[in-house]
Design a protein around this nucleic acid. Structure first.
Lengths: 256, 256
DNA sequence: CATAGAATCTCACATTATGAAAAAAGAGCT
DNA sequence: AGCTCTTTTTTCATAATGTGAGATTCTATG
């Protein structure tokens, strides 16, 4: 596992390991993961894994399906989640921006966050037209590299981290229209030059998107704002206008 | 700290401690908590506390306001939260029930969960009339013992745990209308007898509520469903009808 | 009802976490 | 600015905590 994925922290090995497991379970989808899966993927000894998982279940950070003996996220996570969403975190800070962007354009807006190899939808405002999105509703996700919000974040990571993620996601790109490794790298280059990511009907015919990362100085991008709209709405200068709107809101958010 | 609050788990002291800290921060509100606060409240040594907090911040389970040096829930929690809400957890399992109850009555419905000494709103469907609620929207909370959903959960905890929570919350009850320790105990007794909790205009004039716990056999109640409605809608048999509706949905949820 | 595969438990061992104490960084006050 | 008090951060010797190989128990499946 490369250095940037998991930074070992001084004197808390057990916690580091617990977080690895939490991440794996969070990524594990609805079906959940078995002890064996988790031990294999984390690289931890089965016994150690078991002990940590049991503890996490005890605290309801994880839950276990006793029938199938699989682990999934627990009730306490749901509670922490709603609490985190209320506090001064990223979701609250972007609430107004999301709503205002939607109001000023009439289009669907998303707040996406980086999570492992994925881009997760943290919040969303639906536009006047129902547009199909890859992400779906809150909690939905796509591989990093798929879609404008997702590309926007990927583009501003360190190059070695980018490479690592792209390579990890290669197998998943094939299930999207027109997406190859080269294409992703091209999109990243375009995005870095332009400052925002654009997709005009490439992933979903007739659907366009514009995305820009939320960059706190000195940190790698953790989140992005994006628009999804009908290609039919596009005319000269429209993409630039959307880019400018995003920039305005993100500057305000970062400035706080 | 009494046994039922934190069950020490075999061979993972550090994790237990981390969860204590996470809980404290989650409870700490929007302003966040300082190292000193956390060390005092958790009873942990300052250095130990510091080390654990740093690690949690490193993993973005917590975030730190560098200006004010205070800790609050981090971005990763928000992500875990939306993931947990999507999986087969309590929120998903109650989604349909919440919507159906709202549809069948036209009233506001809540999904509440037990968290430390509080009852937290995990999900909500707004009714036809806008009614004021103590809980507010998702993520909002009230002390356990305040409001029908909250009483419903409190009523079915073990007696010693009930006592402990009531005593811990005593100071907070005074800020609610007509609420005293005796009143809470009376409501608990009524709720146990009846199977569901009722409030008719006592906490907020003109606003009534009905709540019932979601009881998985062999476990203490972790969540409750509740209605909030205008007292004006009440007539003979209405409360019983609402109780029956709740029972029907909860039986279905538990039966899954 | 065997059998393999997975989960759980045990325990000797040493790595990891602990916390007292010292150092550093802020916050107030005059 | 200078001084004092408070809070945060770092250090390091010590031992308690977590580790993981292996034994045991459980469970699904042919």
């Amino acid at each position: 596992m490369p250095a940037f994925v998991q930074s070992p922290s001084g004197g808390a090995q057990l916690l580091d390991r617990a977080v690895i497991l939490l991440d794996l379970v969070a990524d594990g989808g609805v079906e959940g993961l078995s002890l064996k899966d988790l031990a294999a993927r984390s690289g931890l000894n089965t016994a150690t894994c078991h002990r940590i998982l049991n503890t996490l279940v005890g605290h309801k950070l994880l839950a276990r399906d006793n029938q199938k003996r699989r682990y999934r996220l627990g009730a306490r996570m749901a509670i922490y989640g709603v609490r985190a969403a209320r506090g001064p975190g990223i979701i609250s800070r972007c609430e107004v921006a999301l709503s205002r962007l939607r109001r000023r354009t009439g289009d669907t807006t998303h707040l996406m966050a980086c999570f492992n190899h994925d881009s997760v939808c943290l919040d969303r405002r639906d536009g006047e037209c129902i547009v199909p999105t890859l992400t779906g509703s809150i909690g939905g996700f796509v591989p990093l590299g798929v879609g404008p919000g997702s590309i926007a974040m990927l583009a501003f990571l360190d190059e070695d981290e980018q490479d690592y993620i792209i390579r990890a996601n290669l197998g998943r790109y094939v299930s999207y229209r027109n997406l190859t490794e080269d294409k992703v790298r091209q999109l990243i280059a375009d995005t870095r030059r332009r400052g925002y990511a654009v997709d005009v009907g490439e992933l979903i015919p007739g659907i366009a998107g514009v995305g820009m990362p939320i960059m706190t100085p000195g940190e790698k991008p953790g989140a992005a704002l994006s628009f999804t709209l009908l290609c039919a709405k596009l005319g000269p200068g429209v993409l630039e206008h959307y880019g400018a709107l995003l920039k305005e809101e993100i500057d305000a958010i970062v400035g706080q």
